[in-house]
Design a binder for these strands. Sequence first.
DNA 1: ATCTCAACCTCCAGACATTAGAGGTTTGAG
DNA 2: CTCAAACCTCTAATGTCTGGAGGTTGAGAT
Lengths: 138, 138
Amino acid sequence: MLSIGDLSKRTGVKVPTIRYYEQMGLLAAATRSEGNQRRYERSDLDRLAFIRHARDLGLDISAIRELIALGSHPQQPCGDIDRIAAEHLSGVREKIAKLKKLEEELERIVSHCDGNHAIKDCYVIRSLSDHGLCEGEH
Amino acid sequence: MLSIGDLSKRTGVKVPTIRYYEQMGLLAAATRSEGNQRRYERSDLDRLAFIRHARDLGLDISAIRELIALGSHPQQPCGDIDRIAAEHLSGVREKIAKLKKLEEELERIVSHCDGNHAIKDCYVIRSLSDHGLCEGEH
DNA sequence: ATCTCAACCTCCAGACATTAGAGGTTTGAG
DNA sequence: CTCAAACCTCTAATGTCTGGAGGTTGAGAT
């Protein structure tokens, strides 16, 4: 049996976050010690690792809840699960595309500015003020 | 003179968000009509466009406040502005790198799942449960 | 057996950048 | 002049945690 602190150390999920996940219904309410402290076992550790992994991938709480619910019917076909992951993949791709445009623009801004001219002539300020200077759209 | 709704339409920033920016000190308190409604002019539109642009680039409110403050002393050299932009650039690059790893992993996960086997054998669930299946780190 | 102090408990509040709603007032077009 | 749309302020919610206050428990050392 693990304390909440043990669980935290092993998964890298902070203690209040574990309690939050319990509150959000991602983790079943833990069994308690005589003194009312949460006690966890192997299966809780696995589930928390699953949650953490999914969060790292950027899935939100409700998506994870959906996955967990689906996962509890292991005989059914996994089409829905596939759909959730695929939807998320396209979301991630969009974010990457956006960020790449931002990266280019910031690069351009920084490379034009040597840090030594007066602010009124600074390319950073000029290009932030005047969207027309941007090469891409965003 | 523009109403807050006009400003909103022209910049794509929602009305309550404009009021929020005023509250946060990014926009100066607008002049008011006789009936206490906000009235804006050209310079407000420019500044709001600046703010919006900076937010699109992912700068947070305090960074924007900093830029605005620096921009109001146009005789000083722009080293600080350059620093803010450069710091932000490295943040964006980190985000991109992270998301690319996620993209790869999600691709791998999705491609292994044809949506037709039982959930207990689904690669999505298996790889979320077992970090050891990941090729990269995250 | 007792002491001690880290780790635990609950509840509440804050962080971020908005967004939405309630309830009331002003504006401007017909 | 009327009346709906747009405005006002204030409050509260969103999502995902994170921190603190104030009090209790657990476990190792004496």
